[in-house]
Write a protein that binds this DNA or RNA. Structure first.
Length: 422
DNA sequence: TCTGGGGTCCTAGGACCC
DNA sequence: TCTGGGGTCCTAGGACCC
């Protein structure tokens, strides 16, 4: 049975989430900012039309934001995560196989649906997601994932498609591919695009026609796979069960520059606590911990950054163990006389928590540790992150990441439910 | 004044072994 | 002329994604 993929992708996901519970925002330009309200990470169509680019620092476009009364939001990951889950649950019945590819995208297998009118099926999907979640999505359909991505782009960009485009039902595929720039193809980033352009390859159609050996040499097996996908030969399968994580990170820019070791220890302690929570949620334990710190690269003045990776004394998912290692590492790489902007903690060498090898005498302590961590996580789930924390994380948090324009957690907090007035 | 965060995969090269 | 050859494992770095 030849494969058929549908890619369902939410339009301007974060910006659209803000709109669902705030109808006044319809038709208005919206931007959503990254942590610390630093860069633009999402834009409504109206904001795109104003020429606001993706990833642009907020301070550079402040005049535009003010002049056009653009609605500005800090990232509200609690809201977006919950809305994402609603979308995925809505998509589930439409296909026997679903791959959640990112927070706002899913691949559906439509293999075996070839006798259906897939454009109509796509329209039903689109209308259902809109009705059940309030979010607009686009649907692209084709026989490979890479082509489904392209079909989705067409659906999004061409209003008369009604948000659904089926490349299988398209009579002039060459015309479609010739209108897609090579840098818009999934898997072609800035660097590969530059090289391809230098060789006169500027469209998806031209990329499809390149010589196999040539692309293999320049872009490795990844490049070859991509070209085959453009030709309609499916090389990327649907992945229904996500592979176990290989690394977990918490890294963040500070709300202000920091210089003392005491502050850096606090920050690293907080970040370690966050990443340890992720670790336990995934039911994993870590064998290696990496700490990094860096000054502000955009600023003049002395620069310093360093990274230290250490194998942990024992495989663990215990926050205190991990903090102990992280503090030792930050003490080792910290240097006085600098203004630090960012630090991070990464866990690798992850193994299933159930497989932790405990020696005979360790058994008692491990049981105790598990109970303590369960209690810690339960308290913080119930009363909010950081309610219960280690003293090494400090109490002032003057360096905390800033979110000055955050919308309420409409869907996950009783006190933030939207209120409808007659 | 102000510039995000969290991932994956592949490849090349070095160390080491027999 | 010609200085073995083949394999594994690990790491760093590059490229990409959302």
């Amino acid at each position: 049975m030849p494969p058929i993929f549908a890619l369902v992708d939410c339009n301007n996901f974060y910006a659209s989430c803000e709109r669902v519970f705030n109808p006044k925002l319809h038709g208005q330009p919206i931007v959503v900012l990254s942590n610390n309200d630093g860069c633009v990470v999402a834009r409504s169509n109206e904001a795109k039309a104003l020429g606001i680019g993706m990833g642009v620092p907020e301070f550079q476009i402040r005049p535009v934001l003010r002049a056009h009364q653009v609605q500005v939001f800090s990232s509200n990951y609690t809201l977006y995560g919950d809305m994402s889950q609603r979308v995925m649950e809505t998509l589930d019945p439409f296909s026997p196989e679903l791959e959640i590819y990112s927070i706002d995208e899913a691949f559906l297998s439509l293999s075996g649906f070839s006798s259906w009118n897939l454009t109509e099926h796509g329209q039903v999907i689109r209308a259902t997601v809109k009705r059940w979640t309030g979010l607009p999505v686009s649907v692209g359909i084709a026989e490979t994932k890479t082509l489904a991505k392209i079909a989705n782009r067409v659906a999004k960009r061409t209003p008369d498609t009604g948000g659904v485009f089926d490349l299988l039902a398209c009579s002039d595929r060459e015309a479609v591919l010739s209108r897609v720039a090579v840098e818009e193809v999934w898997g072609i980033g800035r660097n590969h695009a530059r090289v391809l352009n230098q060789h006169g390859i500027t469209t998806a159609l031209q990329l499809r026609e390149v010589d196999d050996q040539w692309i293999r040499k320049r872009m490795g097996v990844v490049g070859l796979r991509l070209v085959l996908e453009l030709r309609g030969i499916s090389c990327l399968d649907l992945e229904q069960c996500p592979a176990p994580k290989q690394s977990l990170t918490c890294s963040r820019a500070f709300g202000k520059l920091m210089s003392t070791l005491a502050e850096m220890e606090e920050a690293v302690s907080v970040y370690t606590s966050r990443v340890a929570e992720k670790l336990r949620r995934e039911r994993l334990a870590a064998t290696v911990l990496t700490v990094c710190l860096t000054t502000n690269e955009f600023k003049d003045g002395p620069q310093y950054s360093n990274t230290l990776t250490r194998t942990l004394p024992t495989v663990t998912d215990n926050t205190a163990d991990l903090i102990g290692s992280a503090i030792q590492s930050i003490q080792a790489i910290y240097r006085g006389g600098y203004h630090y902007k960012k630090a991070g903690v990464m866990l690798t060498g992850l193994v299933p928590a159930s497989q932790i090898q405990a020696d005979l005498f360790d058994e008692h302590n491990r049981r105790k540790s598990n109970r303590l961590m369960s209690a810690l996580d339960a308290v913080n789930d119930r009363w909010g992150a950081g309610t219960l924390h280690y003293a090494s994380s400090g109490f002032t948090r003057s360096w905390k990441t800033q979110f000055h324009h955050r919308s309420p957690a409409y869907t996950t907090d009783w006190n933030s439910l939207p209120i409808v007035t007659a």
